[in-house]
Amino acid sequence: MNPLEILDSILIKNGIITAFLVVGIIIWFSYFLSEKLTKGKFHGSAIAIIISLILAYFGGYLTGGEKGLADIEIFSGLAVLGGAMFRDFAIVATAYGVDTSELRRAGKVGVLSLFIGVILSFAVGAIIASLFGYQDPVDITTIGAGTVTFLVGPVTGTALGASSEIMALSIAAGLVKSILVMVATPLMAPYVGLNNPKSAMIFGGLMGTNSGVAAGLAAVDPKLVPYGAMTATFYTGLGCLLAPSVLFLLIRFLH
């Protein structure tokens, strides 16, 4: 009877509970670092997100899986706790107590930022793809779509019949974007005026990546989360609408 084996099997069997414990420890340690090293200036949740991303890197490095740290069996509960279901449920809960006049006031510019955000990210992806030597309009469109979000990439690629390497590349572009938004938002926020509901709505519309926006705003000011999430939630849908249709025709026309 090995006590470590027993513990191991309990941790694995009760995955989500283990995840609560793990996340609790990460957050406690992060707030400790935030207090000791930065006197609370760099937000504890920003540090927690960065530590988690680093752990996710090692998870991927060690297991070769796609779910970061959650591919290590005793941490598998993180995939459930951090999955889309709980994430979206909690995002909806943050809307409780939202100031509706703020939503109305920034509504129009929020919608505008959505269109600009999707088209801009697509254009950047498409231009970089052609600079790297991709010539086929299907490839260029799929990579551009992946830069919109890692969901729009494969949806567009499937619709246009792109090869699986191009699809993988487009997913990677979306992943880079989403992870970068998580890390860069707390650093950039003071310089771009991301400190009020209106700029949060614009931020959500421009970036669009649900996970990036969710984590980015959590690390700046949790009160801003519902405003950013409100616009970001329409982004992937808009991307799926525009990329395989209008934007693909545009790329083919330009070619």
């Binding site: 995840a19 609560f20 793990v22 996340v23 609790g24 990460i26 957050i27 949740s45 927690a48 997100i49 988690s52 991303l53 680093i54 752990l55 996710a56 890197y57 998870g59 991927g60 490095y61 796609e66 779910k67 970061g68 740290l69 959650a70 941490f75 993180l78 995939a79 706790l81 951090g82 999955g83 709980f86 994430r87 909690a90 995002i91 809960a93 943050t94 970089i128 793809a129 790297f132 991709y134 990579i143 992946g146 590349l169 487009s170 990677a172 572009a173 992943l175 880079v176 989403s178 992870i179 998580m182 996970s211 969710a214 984590a215 959590a218 949790p222 989360v225």
Partner: peptide
């Protein structure tokens, strides 16, 4: 509980393949 969920979400990202993706991405 939103922030803890986001921290768990960060821990399950495919960071390795994002960094391993190469130039274009």
């Amino acid at each position: 509980i939103y922030i803890p969920i986001v921290v768990a979400m960060a821990a399950k990202q495919n960071v390795f393949s994002a960094l391993d993706a190469g130039g274009v991405a």
